[in-house]
Design a protein around this nucleic acid. Structure first.
Lengths: 228, 228
DNA sequence: TTCCCGAGGATTGTCGACAGTCGACGGAGC
DNA sequence: GCTCCGTCGACTGTCGACAATCCTCGGGAA
């Protein structure tokens, strides 16, 4: 019944991932819960009861509590004093806030990138865009989503600010929750390719204003008709 | 010896703040530690040993652990597995990252503000700037710092994005740690007043580019010659 | 009927104890 | 002298039990 090892040193026979194996119980529990939230097994708004989780995973409540606290800090879970934790409910207002936040960070990164006009940096982006094109050509939806995010992750990474990077990572995890709901963006896959292509071209040419406009449009794009 | 009440319902005779009194032990411990970090009692780099803290505050280790986790999420504390927590060390690189992050958020808020050109919103900012002027005129350094931050907090609040607001709040707490070190900015108090005045004027006139430039300069200003 | 209130169950918050891990110290081997 | 390895103390990670709080659901009064 226990999905997670009870003791840190104890071996999970069926788990091969070393980093997961060696991580503390709390981190492992957080990982499990994060996945369940991401894949929809745990629906937005559903309660997360410490005792149930600890029993199911075969651990005590302490690491479960810590895991919930971590997820709360990531914004995936909301904790109310004496009333427990629940998966953050999805609504349009929240998604808007997430995207605005994301926009603020990506704009910052973009500005940096254009300002230094470093060919090597742009080449890295180019590689990611090509990967996206390939995924779309294959008609692989999941890969397309990953490749899309990889482009933006790269953009952020190129800004060289770990704090911003961390915040962005946390935003992405949350935004991913909405992707299933708002898959519209990934239905028009060709548009997606075109958008990135145009964006990258603008960046390559050092067009500050244009690249920014394209970024704005892309991030907000496809999330217009959300109905959670 | 116990500075913090052991049990939630138990009364602390000398504490008047109701919200503090009613908060969970973990939150109270976090508050105490946060203050100690802020006022320099706990120096950057110093270790935070759970057992010591719990004994000193007269609580068990559980709430102390939770408090440390919260502070870690705020970026005030760094936790290394099996090796404990310590106050994040201050260095120039980190301050730069903090300020860049802050810049990204304030730029976003500013853009919003200028775009909607709402007199009521600008009036609120005006009030804060006036308060700063008054504090500077009185020569009250602490009040000047608070008034300065209040202006920026107001700017962020006007953007109406709770996520951004929360992130900003956390940034400010961290940036405050550097203010003692880098008090240069608050030495030239008149400059500070002038900067805000010019900034607000640009906002009132709807000058997108100018207001932004002034914001950039102001945020990065005074932190140039840091020597921690 | 509607509202208040108080018991009781479910769940979170806190505690003390034990298990596991890290880093320092010191001795053995080369 | 230098490196390796085992021991030891200090500390963190995890556990199960107890205390405090919230929520629900009846029962009684207006």
């Amino acid at each position: 019944m226990g999905v997670v090892c009870a003791a840190p040193a104890q071996r999970c026979g069926n788990v091969t991932n070393k980093t997961f194996e060696r991580a503390s119980t709390a981190v492992r529990v957080a990982t499990v819960l994060r996945e369940r939230i991401a894949n929809g097994e745990l629906r937005p708004g559903s309660r997360l009861i410490e005792l149930d989780i600890s029993r199911e995973l075969g651990v005590s409540r302490s690491p479960v509590r810590e895991a919930l606290l971590r997820l709360a800090e990531e914004g995936l879970v909301e904790i109310l004093p004496y009333r427990g934790a629940m998966v953050v409910p999805l609504d349009k207002a929240r998604l808007t806030e997430l995207l605005e936040f994301r926009l603020a960070l990506e704009r910052f990164a973009l500005e940096r990138l254009v300002a230094r006009s470093d060919p090597a940096a742009i080449a890295r982006l180019r590689k990611r865009v090509d990967a996206l094109d390939a995924a779309i050509a294959r008609g692989d939806r999941q890969a397309s989503i990953d490749a899309d995010l990889a482009i933006h992750r790269e953009l952020i990474a190129l800004a060289g600010n770990r704090l911003v990077e961390r915040a962005f990572e946390s935003l992405i995890v949350q935004i991913r929750l909405y992707i299933d709901v708002t898959s519209a963006q990934y239905e028009r896959a060709e548009d997606l390719a075109t958008e990135h292509e145009a964006f990258l071209t603008a960046v390559e040419r050092g067009e500050t204003i244009m690249s920014r406009k394209l970024l704005d449009a892309h991030i907000m794009h496809g999330f217009e008709d959300l109905t959670p």
